[in-house]
């Protein structure tokens, strides 16, 4: 079996599963947030703040944030290994993607739980 050190789950089958499970979480979250926004045309700050103060919504958001990192990693890893043939360039690109994902994760937690 061919193994790649940069593969998320160290195996294609595991990556495949991570991609799907995170996709379902993200789809549910996107539909939830979009549905909420479409249903509240006159959104106030109090309602918006209240939504993200709800513990369930915070946990859901955290789950979506974790899923985003995993989903984007598998996707960008797949794309970069397909198109970037130079090992150094590919590594730097993947490192940059990983760094951005880490920033998103920390930033997201800061938004959700405040200072």
């Amino acid at each position: 079996m061919v193994m790649s050190v940069t593969s998320f789950g160290r195996s294609g089958v595991y990556d495949w599963m991570v991609q799907r499970v995170s996709a379902v979480v993200l789809a549910a979250y996107v539909l939830f947030i979009l549905g909420y926004l479409v249903a509240s045309p006159d959104l106030t700050y109090e309602a918006w703040k209240g939504l993200f103060s709800n513990a369930c919504v915070r946990i859901f958001s955290l789950g979506a944030l974790v899923s985003l990192g995993a989903h984007a990693w598998v996707g960008l890893w797949t794309i970069s290994t397909d198109y970037l043939k130079n090992g150094v360039v590919r590594f730097l690109c993947q490192a940059l993607c990983g760094a951005v994902m880490f920033v998103y994760f920390v930033w997201g937690i800061e938004i959700l739980w405040g200072l």
Partner: peptide
């Protein structure tokens, strides 16, 4: 694939707006 890469960048804008909108009444407006 293209939309996936675009979203990876676009998420930054969405999170920036989420951050601003939750920072207070002023930020929301």
């Amino acid at each position: 694939r293209v939309t996936g890469v675009a979203l990876f960048v676009g998420v930054a804008i969405l999170m920036w707006m989420l951050d601003l909108s939750l920072s207070g009444e002023e930020g929301f407006n």
